[in-house]
Design a protein around this nucleic acid. Sequence first.
DNA 1: GTCTATAATTTGATAGAC
DNA 2: GTCTATCAAATTATAGAC
Lengths: 202, 202
Amino acid sequence: MAEQQYSAKANEILNAAELRMRQGGFDAVSYRDLAAAVGIKASSVHYHFPQKADLGRAVVERYTAKLLAFLGQADDPADSAETRVQKLCAAYQHALIHEEVPCLCCVLGAESLDLPPVVCQAVGKFFEQMIHWTATALLANSEASGNGAGSSPSDRQAAEVLARHIISTLQGTMITALTLQDTKVLTDAEPFLLRLVRAKDV
Amino acid sequence: MAEQQYSAKANEILNAAELRMRQGGFDAVSYRDLAAAVGIKASSVHYHFPQKADLGRAVVERYTAKLLAFLGQADDPADSAETRVQKLCAAYQHALIHEEVPCLCCVLGAESLDLPPVVCQAVGKFFEQMIHWTATALLANSEASGNGAGSSPSDRQAAEVLARHIISTLQGTMITALTLQDTKVLTDAEPFLLRLVRAKDV
DNA sequence: GTCTATAATTTGATAGAC
DNA sequence: GTCTATCAAATTATAGAC
């Protein structure tokens, strides 16, 4: 969790690279365009990120850390499972509606089969961590309530399955929202997901 | 619905282009690679598809027609809404598990913001037609059963929302399945979706 | 329909000066 | 850290012969 992990200029480059990747995928990023976006030359961008695959990995890792930081502790006792999933939905809605680009790992995940290995691994780790956060968010609730024994292995497994489903649905709705140019698909998903969260507790 | 819309060689090219696009997106396709795949030269591929955007559009349109043909009539009275959604799930499972590549429009949809306009429009049309098929599949059931009045406008709207959600979820689970290298995410989605279909009828 | 040849551009990446 | 200069390779696309 070291702050200032990248220099100010390196962060500018990562910002520009993240935006382009979220618009058009890994191949949409070029050193020339990044250079122009941050006011230096392409060879100077290579100084900060020698290989494009390393740049890609850095973008994904920073993105993952940012999103998890926004979501906060998955087992914050102040929240219910429903509230936590709402927070997750809000994060995805903010990305598409206000930043006007889909989730980075939605775009990169779709081209997984053609991604440089280090980038592909970073995307895989993003999904693992997001699913872990969500599964914990679903479970922490039932632990806090009545039955003090914590969550059983089968509870954990059910939460994992539901968490994967929730993350997947959010990614998919972003794609449909993009193609139909209508963010309603994404906001409409929230009640469907919350229904599943509630059904799980019953 | 003209048969033989493309020559045999053009179809070979479309096959190769579809595979590459489903692996790595629109930019992953190159005339050189396509030429090598079908045993001719790049300039000869240009004879069949002068512009790359046209090639992309053709791939998407043929893909859309193929999938809709496989799904068949959305209001076949022999099936229930549940059976029809199962058929839809089966189509997506077949793509990922047996063809070992995700849905073409999952990949292209994710890079919508950077696609040539004609390709983007074709992808949008794919989603519209898939959602229309699914909404009809959901409604045809309640029409066939007891209340002979057909579906009310609010029924149609609810079916549209659910249809968009189902299509979106299938796309999203493909992405997660790819990144986790585990097709279970996709097969696990089916019971969640069928639950929503059943809940709608109650 | 397919070929050779070629054009014009873009790409990721490196060497070396300042 | 940033620059100029340069490279080798790949890209879409066209002209014209067969």
